[in-house]
Amino acid sequence: MEDIVNFHTIHEYNVFNNNETLHPLVSIVDLDKAEPRRLRRLQYDFYTVFFKKIYCGDLRYGLNNYDYEEGTLIFLAPGQVIGENKDEYYQPQGIALVFHPDLLLGTALGKKMADYTFFSYAVNEALHLSEYERKTILDCFEKIQYELKRSIDKHTRQLIVSNIELFLNYCERFYDRQFITRENANKGILEKFETQLNNYFTSEKPYSIGLPSVAYFADALHLSSNYFGDLIKKETGKSAQEYIQNKIIEIAKDKVFGTQTSISEIAYELGFKYPQHFTRLFKQRVGYTPNEYRNLN
């Protein structure tokens, strides 16, 4: 069995799922038409959005199951891998919106795709839709499918791309809603982050690892870096990197003012590889160099 099945083109993925190719760069794929198949690791060279429209519990693709009645969206950027290789068989169900990066070349959407950070979220950070949201998403899919079924003319590409952008903008709104409705769970993550951040600087990790990174804490909290970063931004109004830097400066101020430890040693204690980098950051954030701040106080 192949380790990873890679789909290079939209047509290959349509054939894999027994769907007709109406456009070489974009498709609304009816996964119900696919034959039952073995669990495999799958990779796509294009953007992929899975919409599970049934009462979940079978949201598999070799991954975790989910229990959400209204529907679920999973986003994959080109090059991402989903699933696992097993001898089990399953029946794919739902809809997939797939579109190749080449479709977006020269468009406004192509320039802002990096802003849709949910394409780098982990599968367990999927978007769970309400009934109203589900209808909105299906309406977007219908508009794209309508254009695909028409004869291609000079308006086709622009209208398809515009409807994909509309769909993604709705997804941004719905993710914002999800962050709010999961506020209690998010606060628990924020508290754990704060605890781990404090523990980091009372351990030997600054010496062994260096400065704490967003990726380090995201991994420790079992979240993708983008989801973690977006969650912290929604909860605090600051990026995760800003939040970490604020903690570094807070601890640095205490060390500079409250001890006679040399500035170089303080820099190393915080995880800086070079003391001058610490001095530069401190001056940027506080307005004084560490020595100036010590003398000022």
Results as ranks from 00 to 15, higher is better:
residue 238 K to C: 06
residue 218 A to W: 02
residue 204 E to P: 00
residue 97 L to H: 05
residue 208 S to Y: 15
residue 90 Y to P: 09
residue 226 N to T: 11
residue 146 Y to T: 12
residue 294 R to I: 04
residue 153 D to I: 05
residue 251 I to G: 03
residue 143 K to V: 05
residue 209 I to E: 15
residue 70 E to G: 12
residue 135 K to Q: 13
residue 254 D to W: 07
residue 267 A to S: 13
residue 282 F to H: 01
residue 212 P to H: 07
residue 211 L to N: 05
residue 72 T to V: 15
residue 93 Q to P: 00
residue 182 R to S: 10
residue 226 N to L: 04
residue 46 F to T: 07
residue 219 D to V: 01
residue 202 T to L: 09
residue 125 E to Q: 11
residue 138 L to Y: 04
residue 238 K to L: 14
residue 179 F to H: 07
residue 242 E to Y: 09
residue 107 T to Q: 02
residue 65 N to M: 09
residue 50 F to A: 03
residue 78 P to A: 04
residue 265 E to W: 02
residue 25 L to P: 01
residue 261 T to C: 03
residue 56 C to V: 12
residue 143 K to G: 00
residue 207 Y to L: 14
residue 268 Y to H: 11
residue 65 N to D: 14
residue 67 D to K: 10
residue 173 R to G: 06
residue 79 G to M: 13
residue 44 Y to K: 09
residue 222 H to V: 13
residue 276 Q to F: 13
residue 15 V to E: 15
residue 67 D to S: 12
residue 1 M to T: 12
residue 225 S to V: 13
residue 3 D to V: 13
residue 294 R to M: 04
residue 30 D to E: 14
residue 287 G to D: 05
residue 250 E to D: 15
residue 267 A to P: 10
residue 247 K to C: 09
residue 142 E to H: 10
residue 205 K to G: 01
residue 233 K to L: 14
residue 149 K to C: 13
residue 63 L to N: 11
residue 14 N to Y: 03
residue 152 I to G: 00
residue 128 H to G: 03
residue 238 K to H: 13
residue 243 Y to C: 05
residue 85 N to S: 12
residue 208 S to P: 01
residue 42 L to M: 13
residue 179 F to R: 07
residue 167 F to G: 04
residue 121 Y to I: 06
residue 156 T to G: 03
residue 241 Q to D: 11
residue 235 E to I: 11
residue 194 E to P: 00
residue 225 S to Q: 14
residue 164 I to S: 01
residue 213 S to Y: 02
residue 30 D to P: 06
residue 139 D to K: 01
residue 154 K to Q: 08
residue 290 P to A: 00
residue 97 L to P: 05
residue 184 N to P: 00
residue 23 H to N: 15
residue 195 T to Y: 09
residue 152 I to E: 15
residue 262 S to Q: 05
residue 279 T to A: 11
residue 293 Y to R: 04
residue 159 L to N: 14
residue 201 F to W: 13
residue 30 D to T: 07
residue 165 E to V: 06
residue 141 F to P: 06
residue 36 P to Y: 05
residue 173 R to D: 13
residue 183 E to F: 10
residue 254 D to H: 12
residue 150 R to A: 08
residue 253 K to F: 03
residue 24 P to W: 02
residue 105 L to V: 15
residue 213 S to P: 04
residue 236 T to Y: 06
